[in-house]
Design a binder for these strands. Structure first.
Lengths: 340, 340
DNA sequence: TCACATACTGGAATCGGTTCCATCTCGGTG
DNA sequence: CACCGAGATGGAACCGATTCCAGTATGTGA
């Protein structure tokens, strides 16, 4: 395998000059640079990142901690992050860890603490203090996207406002019996994404004087299509108390709810209005009214912040104000309608 | 930052002994090992992978090239790979590259050729000769999962047999007007996954004397739910020539087809039978008849093969015979029925 | 009792870059 | 014309592990 010494010898310069010529740092005469580049190309020289990171301390690698890759939101975020990192010359190391457990501890104590990554992006993970402290001690920048936690930059939409807006949309249409399909743990973890959306729902219902109505109409279930399906069957089961509208905490749940309604012979939106959250790529096909967010863009944004924290000054987009919520947009389609 | 020299000094041994004690290679007295381990724990020593890989030449990192993360099959494979690599102490570097393009060349020439990964797993990618040659030259083991290409180990289901089986299932039920929702590029790339499934369909139809029928009933579209939806609308549009059964090349397409049928007022399976391929997690909810494959397991298997190729002898499962197709299973549910 | 294998340990070389520091040249300025 | 600073280059130290080799202590078989 060709090393930089071989390149230097072939070009008739020192290792130091060869390194400067190839990395672009420091002063090198144009003619010399071309000679070095030609020599490198001739013998197919490829720099060893291990050697470089040993001396510079930078790995050109960012760790991404993500609980799912197979939920639409997370997959989109991951793709966005990947594209942005690739463009900046960074590698992305994937750690697919969910809720607490041995694997999770192992990732934080062993993999991330090792000097393999320059920074960490945590997507939809509620980080414990121990975890943020561990990263902090190693002086590794941390960006959290859509999760709670103390250390590091926090990027997130305003989930409470989203929950409230979705509910208000249904209230505006005249609905009063509005149910909420919440994510698991919404009631026990009020700080989490699920919890905030639930809070927003409760807040809007209370503001409309429907607090007691709201309490009876929350079902917690998995943030997936089958989760929404079973949850909706449960809600729509009691004919007397049947809600006329459902606010699903994610579009995937909303799709499941729509299917459940059809299965029960209920027309959407005639008998049941449904609104979701996400702006899923299938939303248009289902005609789903939803509050869009832009996960791919969010991923790219997280990379911008991380790169900035790493001292790379290549920042195309302006960085978001710390703490300012990420953009969302209500898109009305054909699954919500005025109460008959 | 603590280095191994500090550990050695604290434990009163040489760097060499400290290294042996911590890595477990070579002979070290038990008492010494404990002293070294205690010293390491005391100062919070963490080995530098860069330094280690500089001398050993191994990075403990496997690159995964995958065109999507947001299609169910690919997400499942990715999760399976991630779990297995994590368990073996390897990191996973993700390269989300699709069809040919600048990014793709960049990944192969720049990222993968650099000495950052010990091996490569390519999922659903049809590798060019130039690409496999590039990896081969660097002596990097390559495992392809569900894609075509020459170099490296090939893991794949028998897509032709799957296509034939799905079609035969419908034929057995008395259907003759059987349409096929194929993936994009199925006709132009007969070697690809989409192409093989299409071949299987054509073969089974021809064997039943329905070759001419088959030709008229293939629509190529995206391997997604909206893809299946629009494709099915197209197929079911002509009332006279309307097929009584559809073989969709993936479950996600099948879901879209089911929705399209319902939208047109056609009962499933009364007016239209639908069969898919994958064993998607939503298949049960839709009652979908499908030919299951096991992507998570396939991912873990790919890791086993890679680790074997890397000389790690920790192989739990027996390695599959090279070339033997991966397991699949026909699961009959309620979207297929006998022709009325 | 001696020879010899084996367990254990330390010194030193090594991997392949980057970068500090010293040296030299040359053009511009007071 | 002397001086200064910027540009260009080379020598050498350095990052932090692993591992070869040599040396010592200990145990085993003849």
């Amino acid at each position: 395998m060709a090393a930089i010494g071989d390149v230097a010898r072939l070009a008739g310069v020192s290792k130091a000059t060869a390194s400067r010529a190839l990395s672009g740092r420091g002063h090198v005469a144009d003619a010399t640079r071309r000679r070095v580049e030609a020599a490198a190309a001739e013998i197919g020289y490829i720099a060893s990142p291990a050697a470089a990171s040993l001396v510079t301390g930078r790995t050109m690698n960012v760790g991404v901690v993500i609980p799912f890759v197979n939920r639409w939101f997370f997959g989109e975020v991951l793709e966005g992050i990947e594209q942005a990192l690739l463009a900046a010359g960074y590698d992305l190391t994937l750690y697919n860890v969910g809720s607490a457990g041995l694997d999770r501890d192992r990732v934080f104590d062993f993999f991330l603490a090792r000097k393999r990554v320059d920074a960490v992006i945590a997507v939809g993970v509620d980080l414990t203090e121990r975890e943020t402290a561990s990263l902090d001690r190693r002086e590794k920048p941390l960006v959290s996207l859509g999760g709670s936690g103390t250390g590091g930059a926090l990027l997130s939409i305003d989930d409470r406002a989203v929950g409230a807006l979705a509910t208000e949309h249904l209230l505006h249409l005249g609905h009063t019996r509005i149910a909420h399909l919440a994510g698991e743990g919404a009631s026990t973890h009020p700080e989490s994404v699920h919890g905030c959306r639930r809070e927003g729902y409760l807040e809007a219902m209370a503001a409309a004087g429907l607090a007691s109505e709201a309490d009876a109409h929350i079902v917690e279930t998995a943030m997936s299509m089958p989760g929404g399906y079973t949850g909706a069957l449960q809600l729509l089961g009691h004919p007397g108390r049947r809600p006329s509208a459902v606010f699903a905490a994610s579009d995937e749940m909303a799709f499941g709810a729509i299917r459940a309604a059809e299965r029960l012979g209920l027309a959407v939106p005639g008998d049941l209005s449904v609104i979701g959250v996400d702006g899923h790529e299938y939303a248009e096909m289902f005609g789903l009214t939803t509050i869009e967010q832009y996960p791919g863009e969010q991923g790219r944004l997280a990379v911008d912040v991380v790169l900035h924290l790493l001292g790379e000054d290549v920042v195309a987009d302006p960085l978001p104000d710390s703490g300012a919520p990420l953009p969302t947009r209500l898109v009305v389609r054909s699954t919500t309608a005025a109460l008959r």
